[in-house]
Deep mutational scan, measured.
Amino acid sequence: SEEKKKAKERLERLGASSELARELLDRANGNAEKAERLLRKLL
């Protein structure tokens, strides 16, 4: 979806690899905010 694509791009801008961004979104069930929080914990 367009929303998921935007979320993935945002995670990548924050420093996630394409693969990591995809994994985070999967774990967050597509929830962009939750995926971002997970990423911030990792960085």
Score class of each variant (00 low, 15 high):
Glu9Gln: 11
Ser17Ile: 04
Leu39Phe: 06
Glu3Met: 09
Lys6Glu: 11
Lys6Ser: 12
Ala28Gly: 02
Glu2Lys: 10
Lys8Ile: 15
Ala7Arg: 05
Arg10Ile: 08
Glu33Asp: 14
Leu38Cys: 09
Leu25Pro: 00
Leu24Asn: 00
Leu14Arg: 04
Arg13Ile: 08
Glu36Arg: 03
Ser1Gly: 12
Leu11Val: 01
Arg13Ser: 13
Leu39Tyr: 07
Glu33Ser: 10
Arg22Glu: 15
Leu14Phe: 05
Arg10Thr: 07
Arg13Pro: 01
Glu23Val: 12
Glu23Tyr: 08
Leu20Asn: 02
Leu14Ala: 06
Leu11Glu: 01
Arg13Ala: 14
Ser1Thr: 13
Lys34Leu: 15
Ser18Leu: 06
Glu12Phe: 00
Glu33Trp: 06
Glu23Phe: 05
Glu12Gln: 11
Arg37Asn: 14
Leu11Asn: 00
Leu24His: 00
Leu39Cys: 02
Leu38Gln: 09
Lys41Tyr: 10
Lys5Leu: 12
Lys41Phe: 09
Glu19Pro: 03
Glu19Ile: 06
Leu42Asn: 02
Leu42Thr: 06
Glu12Gly: 04
Glu23Met: 09
Leu20Ile: 07
Lys8Asn: 08
Gly15Glu: 02
Lys5Ala: 12
Ala35Met: 04
Leu43Gln: 11
Leu14Lys: 04
Ala16Phe: 02
Leu42Asp: 04
Lys6Cys: 08
Ala16Pro: 01
Ala21Leu: 06
Lys41Arg: 11
Arg40Lys: 14
Glu19Asp: 12
Glu12Pro: 01
Ser1Cys: 12
Glu19Phe: 02
Lys8Phe: 15
Asp26Met: 07
Arg27Gln: 13
Leu11Asp: 00
Gly30Pro: 00
Lys4Gln: 14
Leu42Trp: 08
Leu39Val: 00
Asn31Asp: 15
Leu42Arg: 03
Lys41Asn: 14
Leu14Glu: 02
Lys8Pro: 03
Asn31Gln: 05
Glu19Lys: 09
Arg22Asn: 14
Leu20Asp: 02
Leu11Phe: 03
Glu19His: 11
Lys41Ala: 13
Glu23Ser: 08
Leu43Met: 10
Ser18Arg: 09
Ala35Ile: 04
Gly30Arg: 01
Lys8His: 14
Ala7Trp: 07
Leu11Ala: 01
Gly30Ala: 03
Ser17His: 05
Leu24Gly: 00
Leu25Ile: 08
Glu36Phe: 02
Arg40Cys: 14
Asp26Thr: 06
Asn29His: 12
Leu39Gly: 01
Leu20His: 04
Ala16Val: 07
Asn31Thr: 01
Leu42Lys: 03
Asn29Phe: 09
Ala16Thr: 03
Lys34Ala: 15
Ala32Trp: 13
Arg22Gln: 15
Leu11Lys: 01
Lys5Trp: 07
Leu39Glu: 02
Ala21Arg: 01
Ala7Thr: 07
Glu23Thr: 09
Gly15Gln: 02
Glu9Trp: 00
Ala16Tyr: 00
Ala21Tyr: 05
Leu14Pro: 00
Lys8Arg: 15
Asn29Gly: 14
Ala32Arg: 06
Leu11His: 01
Asp26Leu: 08
Lys34Cys: 13
Asn31Pro: 00
Leu24Val: 05
Asn29Val: 05
Ala32Tyr: 15
Leu39His: 00
Lys5Val: 13
Arg37Trp: 07
Glu3Ile: 10
Gly30Thr: 01
Arg27Tyr: 12
Glu23Cys: 07
Ala35His: 01
Ala21Lys: 00
Leu43Val: 07
Leu14Tyr: 03
Leu38Asp: 10
Glu3Val: 11
Glu3Ala: 13
Ser18Glu: 12
Ala21Val: 07
Ala21Glu: 01
Ser18Pro: 15
Ala35Tyr: 02
Ser17Tyr: 04
Gly15Thr: 03
Ser17Leu: 05
Lys4Ile: 14
Arg40Ile: 14
Ser18Val: 09
Asn29Thr: 04
Asn29Pro: 01
Ala7Leu: 11
Lys8Asp: 04
Ala16Trp: 00
Lys34Thr: 13
Ala16Ile: 08
Glu36Lys: 04
Ala21Ile: 09
Leu25Trp: 02
Lys34Phe: 14
Gly30Tyr: 05
Arg13His: 10
Ala7Tyr: 07
Lys8Trp: 15
Leu42Ser: 05
Asp26Ser: 08
Leu25Val: 08
Gly15Tyr: 01
Arg27Asp: 05
Arg22Val: 14
Leu43Thr: 06
Lys6Pro: 07
Ser18Thr: 08
Glu33Gln: 12
Glu3His: 12
Lys8Val: 15
Ala21Pro: 01
Gly15Ile: 04
Leu24Glu: 00
Glu2Ala: 12
Leu20Thr: 05
Gly15Leu: 05
Arg22His: 11
Lys4Arg: 15
Ala28Asp: 00
Ala28Trp: 04
Ala21Met: 05
Ala7Phe: 08
Leu39Gln: 00
Glu12Asn: 04
Leu24Ser: 01
Glu36Gln: 03
Glu9Ala: 12
Glu2Ser: 11
Glu9Phe: 00
Arg27Ile: 13
Ser17Val: 03
Asp26Cys: 10
Leu20Gln: 09
Glu33Val: 10
Leu42His: 05
Arg22Ile: 14
Ala32Gly: 08
Glu9Arg: 09
Ser1Lys: 11
Ala28Arg: 00
Leu25His: 02
Glu12Thr: 09
Arg37Ala: 15
Lys8Ser: 11
Arg22Ser: 14
Ala28Leu: 07
Glu36Ile: 10
Ala32Gln: 08
Glu33Ile: 10
Leu24Arg: 00
Leu39Met: 03
Leu39Ser: 00
Ala7Met: 09
Ala35Trp: 03
Leu25Glu: 01
Asn29Met: 10
Glu33Gly: 08
Lys4Trp: 15
Glu23Gly: 04
Ser17Trp: 06
Arg40Leu: 08
Ser1Phe: 13
Leu43Asn: 06
Glu19Met: 06
Leu11Tyr: 01
Asn29Leu: 10
Lys6His: 11
Arg37Lys: 12
Asn31Val: 06
Ala7Pro: 05
Lys8Gln: 15
Leu43Gly: 05
Ala7Glu: 05
Gly30Glu: 03
Asp26Glu: 14
Asp26Arg: 10
Leu42Ala: 07
Glu12Ile: 14
Leu14Gly: 03
Leu11Met: 05
Glu33Lys: 13
Ser1Asp: 14
Leu43Glu: 05
Glu36Leu: 11
Ala35Asn: 02
Asp26His: 08
Asp26Ile: 09
Arg22Met: 15
